[in-house]
């Protein structure tokens, strides 16, 4: 790891100020991706601003129609939350299968979506559930948040405060794991929402996306057989040593069907 200045802050405004004052600062959430990246000397921030001391970024609040999760809430906390388990069990299940138990004890919702790894799980849920990302300065719709590989709509110094997930009528997440990293080779989140059936797909393409072709095929009905005839564009899919584009395209369909079935 290269040297850096470490700062721990206690408020969102202090964090933003610290970043502004730094040459090339970075916010540190759970660190489960950022620290390994820094260890491999693939990132060299001048300043690391630790957000873990900011109370307002933590915690889970549930109302009848929304679950709001603070950005610094860990995956383990989301997975174990009775509120999340009750309102959106698929989200609790997703959080409970990110990485491994020790990673889940550190990794956070905010860190995950801000990093926007193409194989991360949370983006599929944010998209499918039509969540709203609340930052220190605005609200960003889930559909608009993920803009490209490791890229989001966030400004350099913008901090995610919380994510609000509308409670769906039904939802399910199916993940096909990379046997080595345990990231998603493909993950499909299907949700029956007040907006109709929405599908978020992660792992398959450079950036998590909405499964519009799949949604269209379902035509508002949770009937997995309707997905049999969907043609997914193989040329848009990721291809690497773990899975070819063709296989990924196939897996998206299989996982989508299984998620639809699990919604019923």
């Amino acid at each position: 790891m290269y040297e850096f200045n470490y700062q721990k802050v206690e408020s969102v405004s202090a964090a933003v100020a610290a970043l502004k004052n730094a040459d090339d600062g970075k916010f540190l959430a759970g660190g489960q991706t950022m620290l390994p990246t820094m260890k491999h000397r693939l990132a060299s921030p001048s300043d690391v601003i630790d957000l873990s001391g900011i109370a307002e970024l933590k915690g889970i609040k549930a109302s009848a129609d929304t679950v709001t999760i603070g950005a610094m809430t860990t995956h383990a906390e989301v997975a174990a939350s009775p509120e999340v388990q009750k309102a959106i069990p698929a989200l609790a299940g997703l959080a409970g299968n990110i990485g491994d138990p020790a990673v889940r004890n550190r990794g956070t919702l905010g860190g995950s979506i801000a990093n926007n790894d193409p194989a991360a799980d949370y983006p599929a849920a944010v998209i499918a559930l039509g969540a709203t990302v609340k930052t220190d300065r605005r609200e960003i719709a889930g559909d608009d948040f993920f803009t490209g590989m490791f890229e989001t709509a966030l400004e350099e110094d913008e901090i995610i405060v919380s994510v609000s997930f509308p409670v769906p009528r039904a939802a399910a997440y199916m993940k096909f794991e990379n046997p080595a990293s345990r990231y998603a080779i493909v993950g499909v989140f299907v949700a029956e929402t007040s907006d109709g059936i929405r599908i978020g797909v992660t792992g398959a393409t450079p950036c998590a996306h909405r499964g519009l072709r799949l949604e269209a095929a379902l035509a508002g009905k949770l009937d997995s057989a309707a997905l049999d005839s969907v043609e997914l564009p193989v040329d848009k899919m990721n291809s690497d040593i773990h899975a070819s584009a063709e296989y990924r395209a196939h897996l998206v369909k299989v996982m989508a069907k299984r998620a639809v079935d699990a919604c019923n």
Binding site: H40, A102, V103, R106
Partner: peptide, 29 residues
């Protein structure tokens, strides 16, 4: 390992398992 996979470094921090290779010492203050 150096990618937070192997778990040989797991310790309990405030009662929870943590990969101590993926946490700064200053974070454990």
């Amino acid at each position: 390992c150096d990618t937070s996979q192997c778990g040989a470094c797991v310790v309990l921090v405030n009662g929870k398992s943590v990969k101590s290779c993926t946490m700064l010492a200053v974070q454990a203050d």
